[in-house]
Nucleic acid binder design. Structure first.
Length: 284
DNA sequence: AGGCAGGTTCTTA
DNA sequence: TAAGAACCTGCC
């Protein structure tokens, strides 16, 4: 399924943007030739998986049917929203730092990921670096998920465990996934959602304050994780998670406060540019 | 060896 | 209500 995408769309930047943990560049083609110049990415989301190849000239090869692209991946990549238009709201003279960050991060999009998968992923993320987060999540998937794809280069690829699957893991199995003290948070979240006590899908109907309030009641979820869940799990693009990197940027570049009013309702997109930029250059 | 990594909870005042 | 300590684990 070959698609042309003219709006901001950079798979490498999305993979490295820190919003997703099962989205990776595949090194090596498996077949030996052909792909030296075209990058290939493995994208796992819930119980779905796709390989995407960059063909150049804004063309991409999605390794799936047209139907699956139209009904799932198009929405997943948020292809109905113009990120170049959102970027265009940034005034170079008024905010040169954010402008530079957005030039650098051009191509980042906010994926429409699953609230359950994001909740567990960001609970795990606390006080961990990205490679460690990814390693824990892959262990969880291999332990409790189903095989959804088998590839010569990547081997077996697993679905993200359902709440029920995850709730059936013992604490011993969970701690085998290098979760550390977060094991009890993950276990409790799985029980809450599997039992129906927490209905993440129903929470889509809540307003921003109500959603935040409910998320903060979850064991192991504080303000930062809740904001990541709201931005990445519920795709509410005005959420602005503040982690150590963003706080450093705000302290040094915006001592008088970040101009949230200028960018509403897309402050979360700006957060992604700032985050990506600050991390890439070691924050100067 | 000690500090730190995309925080949160628990304990004290 | 607010500041400080404790927390698993892996990697410099």
């Amino acid at each position: 399924m070959i698609i042309t995408i003219t709006d901001d769309f950079d798979l490498k930047k999305i993979a490295d943007s820190g919003q997703c943990f099962r989205f990776n560049e595949v090194t090596g083609t498996g077949t030996g030739d052909e792909g030296a110049s075209c990058r290939r990415y493995s994208v796992a989301a819930g119980s779905r998986h796709v390989f995407v190849k960059e063909l150049g000239q804004n063309r991409y090869d999605f390794d799936c049917s047209e139907d699956e692209f139209e009904t799932f991946w198009k929405r997943y990549f948020d292809l109905d929203l113009s990120y170049s238009e959102i970027r265009g709201r940034i005034d170079q003279k008024k905010d040169p730092y954010l402008f530079s960050a957005s030039q650098y991060g051009k191509g980042i999009r906010i994926l429409r990921q699953d609230p359950w998968e994001m909740l567990i992923s960001f609970i795990i993320s606390q006080r961990k670096n990205i490679p460690a987060i990814k390693a824990s999540i892959e262990k969880l998937c291999a332990l409790a998920g189903d095989v959804i794809c088998e590839d010569k280069v990547c081997g077996k690829i697993y679905s993200f465990p359902t709440p029920s699957q995850l709730s059936r893991l013992s604490m011993e199995e969970l701690s085998g996934c290098s979760l550390g003290y977060r094991d009890k948070y993950v276990h409790q979240a799985a029980l809450d959602v599997a039992s129906g006590a927490v209905d993440l899908e129903a929470w889509r109907e809540l307003d921003d304050d109500g959603l935040m309030e409910n998320l903060l009641k979850l064991f192991g979820v504080g303000v930062k994780v809740a904001n990541c869940e709201i931005l990445f799990g519920y795709h509410r693009l005005d959420a602005f998670p503040k982690d150590v990197w963003i706080n450093r940027v705000l302290d040094t570049r915006y001592p008088d406060g970040f101009p949230f009013d200028d960018y509403a309702p897309y402050n979360g997109v700006m957060q992604q540019y700032l985050f990506f930029y600050s991390r890439s250059e070691g924050m100067q």
